[in-house]
């Protein structure tokens, strides 16, 4: 791996990987991003399937010329913006400090 910058023997990484702090960081991140990814993909696919197979439902008027399809479409924007904001808060609060601590431990050991 001559091309990927400095590369240690790997022992310090294996040590950190085996530590409970790292296991906690990893599971915290995965417990957030995996279910969230499944949720937004399911919500998006539901939208696509509704638009493809139920155009009549999407055409139902809610008020004025605003119909169900437009509202669900706009809700996709809202959910995307919301998930983005929630993730950033989560990562700033729960991921970054733990990552920083481990990084300093590794870089101190090198």
């Amino acid at each position: 791996m001559s091309s990927t910058g400095e590369r240690s023997t790997g022992t310090v990484y294996e040590e950190v990987q085996a530590s409970p702090e790292f296991a906690q960081l990893r599971s915290r991140l995965r417990r957030f991003v995996f279910p969230m990814s499944a949720a937004f993909l399911a919500w998006y696919l539901l939208y696509v399937v509704l638009a493809s197979y139920a155009p009549g439902f999407m055409a139902i008027s809610v008020f004025g010329n605003i119909n169900v399809g437009l509202l669900i479409g706009l809700l996709q924007f809202v959910s995307t913006f919301t998930i983005t904001t929630v993730y950033v808060r989560f990562a700033n609060k729960h991921i970054d400090p733990a990552a920083k601590e481990l990084r300093e431990r590794i870089e101190g050991a090198e």
Binding site: G5, E6, R7, S8, G10, T11, Y13, E14, V16, Q17, F22, L25, R26, L29, A99, K100, L102, R103, I106, E107, E110
Partner: peptide, 19 residues
Amino acid sequence: DEARYAEMEVRSLTGAGAE
């Protein structure tokens, strides 16, 4: 492979050794 995966996983989550 174990050692490389350890390095990759730890680096990916902590940013240690990143460019």
